[in-house]
Computed example of a mutant assay.
Amino acid sequence: MSLQSNVLDFTDNEIATYRARTFRSLSELRLRSREDAITFVNQRGFVLFWPAQGIVMPSLWVATAGDRPVADAHDDPGHICWDWKDSLLGKRIWYYARVIRGKNTLIALEALPYFYTLSPNYGDPEHDYLDQYHEGLLTLEAKQVYEALLREGPLDTLTLRRTAHLSSPESASRFERALTTLQMQFRVLPVGTAEVGAWRYAFVYDVTHRHFPDLIVQAGRIQEDEARAYLLRRYLLSVGAIPFSHPMRLFGWNEIDMQRAIRRLERDGYPLKRGLRNTQSAEEWIACPEFLSS
C-alpha cells in the first residue's frame, strides 16, 4: 500500500490476501468440524451459508470447501457444512435464517440483538405485525403464515402451508415470498427439520421472539446508530476494504444511515478510513484499520 497525494492506493491482490484469511479460504485455515464452524461464525459475527453472487461476505461453504462453486454432487466433502447447520437448528448456538438480502445467513448470538434492533419489531411481536399489515408493509400471505405460527407453535413447512391456507400449487411462490419476508424481518426462523414430504426433509419454523425470549430486552438497550456502527465494523473486519455503497446495499441502509454509522464509529474511537481508492476502481472505498496495517 502506498500513500500518494493523501490518497491511499491498494491493489486487488492485497484485498484478496486479507480476505483469504478472514474468509478462511486458505487450505490451512479450512473448517474441519462443527466446533470450527461455530468458532468461525462467532469470530466473523455473521456469514452467509452459501456464497451469493454480488454479495462480498464470508460463507460457511468457502471456509469449508475453499473458494470454488458449490458442488452439485451430494457426496462432495464440502457438503458437510449442511450437516453442521442442520444439527444445530434449534440449539441456540447461532441464528440461522434467510436474512441478509434474503440469503441464508448465520449470525453469532453476540451480533443478533444489533440486527434485531434494526428490524421492524417494536417490542410487542404479538401485535406489531398488525400495524405493519394495515400500513401495507406486510402481505396477507405473510400475515397468515405468522399468525399460524403464533397460534399453533412450531410447524413443519407442509403443515405450515396448510395451516396458513397456502397449500395449493398456485400459492407456492407466494408462500415462499412470505416466509422470506418474515425471516428477513426477524419474525420467524427454522428451528429444526422434519421427515415429511416427497424428500422426507422439511424445515420446522417458529416465531423468533418465542425461540429467543430474551432478544427483545437485549435489543431494547441498543440505539439504532449504535447497531449500524456495530454491524459496519464487523463487516469491515471481514472484508477489509469495500466500496462505500456496498454496505448500504447489503444492509438496506440509505446514505444518512451510513453516515451516522460512520460518525458513531468515529465518536467511539474506531479509526475507520474513508476516501480511499482501489487501483482499479474510481469509487470511494472505506477500510478497517486492521486491513491497512496488515
Rank of each mutant, 00 (worst) to 15 (best):
179 L>M: 12
174 R>Y: 05
180 T>Y: 02
213 P>G: 05
217 V>H: 15
148 A>H: 00
176 E>Y: 04
173 S>C: 07
96 Y>D: 05
210 R>F: 02
163 T>R: 15
154 P>V: 08
139 T>M: 03
167 S>E: 15
159 T>R: 15
143 K>R: 15
178 A>T: 01
117 T>V: 07
119 S>V: 03
142 A>V: 03
169 P>K: 05
187 R>N: 08
203 F>W: 13
175 F>K: 09
183 Q>Y: 00
208 T>M: 11
184 M>C: 13
192 G>N: 04
121 N>M: 10
140 L>N: 12
123 G>D: 06
224 E>C: 09
178 A>I: 02
163 T>V: 14
107 I>W: 00
188 V>K: 02
178 A>W: 00
166 L>P: 15
112 L>C: 06
153 G>P: 12
107 I>G: 01
162 R>N: 03
216 I>S: 12
121 N>R: 14
133 Y>V: 07
115 F>W: 12
110 E>I: 06
143 K>S: 09
110 E>N: 09
204 V>N: 02
163 T>P: 08
125 P>K: 01
102 G>R: 07
114 Y>K: 09
105 T>V: 06
143 K>P: 05
107 I>D: 00
136 G>I: 03
115 F>T: 07
192 G>H: 01
116 Y>D: 11
114 Y>L: 10
134 H>G: 13
151 R>F: 12
157 T>D: 04
122 Y>L: 14
220 G>T: 04
125 P>E: 03
198 A>C: 08
191 V>S: 03
169 P>I: 05
172 A>V: 13
215 L>N: 04
140 L>W: 07
122 Y>C: 12
195 E>G: 06
112 L>G: 06
126 E>H: 13
104 N>C: 12
220 G>A: 08
97 A>C: 01
99 V>D: 03
184 M>F: 01
146 Y>W: 06
217 V>L: 15
202 A>E: 13
99 V>E: 01
201 Y>M: 11
147 E>L: 13
115 F>A: 07
191 V>M: 07
208 T>W: 02
219 A>H: 02
105 T>G: 04
172 A>G: 08
168 S>Y: 07
189 L>Q: 08
215 L>I: 14
96 Y>M: 10
121 N>K: 09
171 S>Y: 11
146 Y>I: 09
208 T>L: 15
155 L>Q: 07
214 D>E: 15
172 A>N: 10
221 R>P: 02
101 R>F: 00
164 A>G: 10
172 A>R: 15
181 T>N: 15
94 W>A: 14
94 W>I: 08
195 E>N: 13
175 F>I: 06
220 G>P: 08
196 V>A: 13
177 R>N: 12
196 V>M: 11
207 V>N: 01
166 L>S: 08
133 Y>W: 14
190 P>W: 03
169 P>M: 07
